[in-house]
C-alpha cells in the first residue's frame, strides 16, 4: 500500500511513526516541520498504519464527518486540499477552531452530519468522504452524505460497534451496518483497527 503524498514515516526519538507537515495541535512530537500522527488517537491514522488501501494520494477534496476536537482532520488538512470538517457538538469544536486557524484549507462546520441539507450550500463535491461519527445509524449518515462524493470517490469509514448497540456482539453490528451501506456503496475492503482501537471496523467503499 502507498501512503498519500504529504504523509511519511519519520522517527521521533526511538519511535517511528506516521507524520504530516503542519502546525502542532496538542503537543504531539515533532521532527522539523513534521508532526507525529498517532494511530491510537486517530481511526484514519490506524487505517493507514494497518496498511489499508485508502485510495488517498494527497491533494484531494475531503468531507470529514465527526471532526470532534480536530486531531485527525488536522492531519487530513495537512496533506489534502479543501477539507470540510463537520462536527455537531460545540464543546470539542473549541479545539477544532484552533486547528482550523492555522490551516487555511480547513473549513469547520458546526452541523449535524445526519442533516446534509444544512451544509449543502457550503460543501462542494469531494474525492473522499471520511466518517467517524459516534452515533446510532452510522450507515444512514454515510448514505445521506453520499451526494457529496464524486463517482470515483472513496468512503473511508470507522464503524463503532458500541455506538449502534452497547450490548450486541460487535461482529453482528458490523454485519448489519455493512448490509445497509450496500444500498449505496460497493464495499472494497474492511479491516479491524486493532490494536489501536477496539470494537471498530474500518471500511473502504465507493459509491455505486
Amino acid at each position: 500500500m502507498t501512503l498519500p503524498d504529504g504523509v511519511e514515516r519519520r522517527s521521533f526519538g526511538e519511535k517511528e511513526g506516521l507524520a504530516t507537515r503542519g502546525e502542532p495541535v496538542y503537543g504531539e512530537p515533532t521532527d522539523g516541520a513534521w508532526r507525529r500522527w498517532d494511530p491510537r488517537r486517530s481511526k484514519l491514522g490506524a487505517m493507514l498504519e494497518n496498511g489499508m488501501e485508502t485510495g488517498l494520494s494527497g491533494g484531494e477534496t475531503v468531507l470529514y464527518l465527526g471532526a470532534a476536537a480536530g486531531t485527525t482532520v488536522g492531519h487530513v488538512a495537512d496533506f489534502a486540499s479543501p477539507t470540510y470538517a463537520v462536527e455537531f457538538a460545540a464543546r470539542p469544536a473549541r479545539d477544532l477552531l484552533s486547528v482550523a486557524e492555522s490551516r487555511r484549507n480547513l473549513f469547520p462546520l458546526l452541523k449535524d452530519a445526519r442533516k446534509p441539507e444544512t451544509y449543502a450550500h457550503v460543501v462542494e463535491p469531494v474525492d473522499a468522504l471520511i466518517q467517524d461519527v459516534a452515533t446510532r445509524g452510522q450507515a444512514k449518515v454515510a448514505l445521506a452524505n453520499r451526494r457529496f462524493l464524486r463517482e470515483d470517490g472513496r468512503l473511508l469509514m470507522a464503524i463503532k460497534a458500541r455506538s449502534e448497540d452497547v450490548t450486541a456482539d460487535p461482529d453482528a453490528v458490523f454485519e448489519t451496518v455493512l448490509g445497509s451501506l450496500e444500498d449505496g456503496y460497493e464495499i472494497l475492503e474492511t479491516g479491524p483497527l486493532a490494536p489501536f482501537h477496539e470494537d471498530h471496523l474500518a471500511v473502504v467503499a465507493r459509491p455505486r
Binding site: 479543501p82 441539507e117 444544512t118 451544509y119 449543502a120 450550500h121 457550503v122 460543501v123 462542494e124 463535491p125 451526494r147 457529496f148
Partner: peptide, 10 residues
C-alpha cells in the same frame, strides 16, 4: 443557510 443541490461552489 441550507440547500439540496450539491454544486461545484468554488
Amino acid at each position: 443557510g441550507s440547500g439540496d443541490a450539491v454544486r461545484e461552489w468554488p
